[in-house]
Design a protein around this nucleic acid. Structure first.
Lengths: 194, 194
DNA sequence: CGGCTAACTGGACACCTTGTCCACTTCATC
DNA sequence: GATGAAGTGGACAAGGTGTCCAGTTAGCCG
């Protein structure tokens, strides 16, 4: 969403420097306290910039969290498109969904703070990343000849909602492995033998 | 949560009258605008009471939405416990989960505004209602000999998250029937032949 | 190198919402 | 109808958001 390369006016040096400072400060604050314990003012002060500078680039806290997650999500997205099976192309749909679930649990496990931060303003469905996951899983459902992919895909993505993961992992204290295993059962049940 | 019957000091007449006015006004406002377009002040003014009166009974907006949903949810809960199969006891786990999904979609379809309103303060996992759905679905998983019910149950409940439903129903424009059908496929895949 | 323009910066500002507090009122009981 | 407790309502302070604009700085061009 920010590396499209079609921006003739190059980013100014001071602006780039500040963007780095902002993202670094935000990542630190999000990790230290919870997602909703961080205000725009906190980030601005920690980054050593004014509030106006913050709002120029990021309309709200969610945008900052999205930008931070972007990097990590992109890595997974590339593996989905061109990595080795079963995450990448070449395996059965059920196995690929299973691998996708596993990768997403790993991602969530490392960045729950950020993922929860995305959900402050309005839900995750509007982010570009969700669109990507949606297209991927939809293709898997189609490949497995599952019924009504358009309705099924959001249901299959629902268990990966950050708040669900947070509840299982932190509140209930389940291990990442147990969550992965349970998701694997789900994946195989829906796309495995269908 | 409010009908426990162990309150020796009976509710005073004026308090009861105001509770009615508050709930009526809140339900109307939640329906008119979205869940997050309603402030405590709006409710107080619409109900013709002061802010202090509101906060005496309900610590935040979420509490009001919970109280409103409570009535409707209780009806479903009673059907789950003692109604005719497949919603009530006596049918196969897969069929019961399927019926449960259907009933929940109907509930959400009528009261999305309230369901979304519950999610403002902090997530739905802490409400008593979620505990009930959780216990119910967990029992179904156990009855079907599914693996690791404690991990599976929240995954099976995730597709019923109000924001997921809202996205499917309102944003994507899917019919309730399609959502029910997709959930039925899910239910049968996981608990059907297991 | 010096000036020009547009982008960038930062903090003051006004607005809105929340939640608390307390003097006053109303109810239920005796 | 007097009394005490529960209930009421609005003023208040605190905190966060997003906007705005005067001043600054980077990149470019003559």
């Amino acid at each position: 969403m920010n590396l499209l390369g079609d921006d003739p006016p190059r980013e100014r040096a001071d602006a780039a420097r500040n963007r780095e400072k902002i993202l670094a400060a935000a990542e630190r604050l999000y990790a230290e306290r919870g997602a909703d314990r961080v205000t725009m003012d906190d980030i601005a002060r920690a980054a050593g910039v004014g509030r106006g500078t913050l709002y120029r680039r990021y309309p709200d806290r969610a945008a900052i969290a999205v930008a931070l997650l972007d990097t990590h999500e992109r890595a997974v997205q590339e593996l989905l498109l061109g990595g080795p099976p079963p995450l990448g192309p070449g395996a059965a749909p059920g196995d690929r969904l299973c691998a996708f679930y596993g990768a997403m649990v790993d991602l969530l496990d490392r960045h729950v703070h950020l993922a929860l931060g995305v959900e402050v303003g309005r839900s995750r469905f509007q982010t570009g990343a969700y669109g990507f996951w949606r297209a991927h899983v939809r293709a898997l459902v189609v490949a497995a000849d599952g019924p009504d992919p358009d309705a099924a895909v959001d249901l299959l993505l629902a268990p990966l909602a950050p708040d669900v993961f947070h509840h299982q992992r932190v509140v209930l204290g389940l291990g990442a492995d147990r969550i992965k295993a349970a998701l694997a059962v789900l994946a195989n049940a829906v796309l495995g033998g269908a």
